[in-house]
Structure formats: structure tokens, C-alpha cells
Design a protein around this nucleic acid. Structure first.
Lengths: 127, 127
DNA sequence: CTGCATCCATTTTGATACTG
DNA sequence: CAGTATCAAAATGGATGCAG
């Protein structure tokens, strides 16, 4: 799409970050909180920076900022900003491309549930 | 299934390795070469330790050993051994549970291909 | 409220020698 | 041939201060 994405992918290719298209897809999720960020946006719609800070357990500002930026570099999420007085507010949301990932995320979810149920592990997940 | 798997999962839960079932599934792939290991077994059938050494670019014995062990802990692959004279040979293969992951791996593959094609990146993957 | 910069801790991966 | 043990390097994540 844009040049930024193009360069991003070309760098990853050159760095040998992935050797096949599957690994490219998985690289979209590689980051401790990325799946949860996407899931929150899918389930709950657009959210602010601070919403993620409050709802992702144990994440720091730096890491959240990094992962949001990477998701934007990969064009999976969009961002808008607006000012309230002198204070900046943000709104992150799923992009059109990001939404094409929803079926995959759902199947990841289903497989994990099936597998955990099969061994009768007591689950106590937030989401 | 077995207690070893159960303990494995409980440990991961306690370590905070995953907070939702999606992340549990993704944890199956978390390891630089795991997807390729699974893909090779799916496409080419059972293979030996040295086959992976020769076909996964730049992997070391320690890392290969670790990732194979983790895949076995997760019950995604099986292993058999036999002796030729005094020399041990091995055979790794997809397990029944591992095979339930095939549709997901295929969709990861398809998404990555679709995405890379859409930006017209020149691909030169081995597999 | 956002989020970058800095410095530190943890995790993951890699090189290599050694054993059965 | 198949691994484990050890040590080193790199990547990732976390805590916190400062700025717009």
C-alpha cells in the first residue's frame, strides 16, 4: 500500500525475519500484547492510549507505545488524535486490513479453547 | 491429555505466558523456527534431527533441540528413536493434535501471501 | 493525556565443546 | 547421529523522567 509498509516489509525480508509467508503473518502478532490490543479493538471498538494502559495488565508506556506503532507500521490499526484544551487524546481502531485478520484470530481462539478444555484446565482469563 | 501437558499449561498460566486462549495458541508457534519445523513435517512427513539442521537456515543444535522439545511438551509432534549399530537415529513426526493445527497454519499462509501480493513485494522464499 | 528517551532486567538465540 | 552444557550475544520488555 503505502511506501512505509513497503519499506517495513522489505527490511524484514532483508533481515531474514521470516522465511515463509506463514512467518510473516505470525510476525504481525509478535509482541507480548499485540493480540490483546487487536482483540480489545475488535470486541470493544476504538480506544484511547490510556484505556490500553488500564486494561493490559503490567504493560509499560514504552512498550505500549512501541507495539501500537508497530501495528500501525503493519497497517493493522489506525489512529486519530484530537485536543481537549491543551491535552492530547487519541483514538486507536482496527484498520480495513486489520479486520481481515479477524477470522484467523477467531480460529486461534477456538483452537486454544478446544485444547484447554480437552485437558480440563481451569481457566480464568479476562477475555 | 497426560499430566505432563497439564503441568506444562499450568506453569505457563502461572508464568503469565498467556492471558487468553488466543495467546495460548500463538504460544505454540513462539520460537523462531517452530512454524518451519511444523511446516516441514506437514509437507514432507517424518524427518530426522539432522534433516532439520540441514534445512533450517542458521539454526544451532541447541536451539533446534530446545524447540523440538517444546513442541513435544506441547504434544504437537512425536518422536521415535532407533539405533544403527552404535549410532542413534531419530524420527520426528506430526502428532494427532499437531495435525489439528494444519488449517490454522494454512490460513496464516494464505493471509501472508495475500498481504505480500497486495504490495507486490518480490518474494523469494524457499517454502 | 500521549509518548519519546534512557537505563536496566529478562528472555531468546547462537557458537562451540563434550558425551553416549 | 543426537543431544546437553556452558558461555556469549542479541532482542525484547519494563521503570521512570521529561516534554508537547
Amino acid at each position: 500500500m503505502t511506501d512505509s509498509f513497503r519499506n517495513n516489509v522489505i527490511n524484514k525480508l532483508q533481515n531474514g525475519d521470516f522465511d515463509c509467508t506463514k512467518e510473516f503473518t505470525v510476525s504481525m502478532f509478535s509482541g507480548k500484547h499485540k493480540l490483546m490490543i487487536l482483540w480489545i479493538l475488535i470486541q470493544e471498538g476504538p480506544q484511547s492510549f490510556s484505556y490500553f494502559m488500564n486494561n493490559l495488565k503490567g504493560i509499560s508506556k514504552k512498550v505500549l507505545s512501541n507495539q501500537l506503532n508497530e501495528l500501525m507500521d503493519d497497517h493493522l490499526i489506525d489512529k486519530s488524535e484530537y485536543m481537549v484544551g491543551r491535552v492530547k487524546h487519541t483514538q486507536y481502531s482496527m484498520s480495513e486490513i486489520g479486520n481481515t485478520l479477524v477470522p484467523i484470530i477467531n480460529s486461534l481462539n477456538a483452537w486454544g479453547e478446544m485444547r484447554l478444555n480437552s485437558v480440563d484446565i481451569e481457566k480464568k482469563f479476562n477475555r
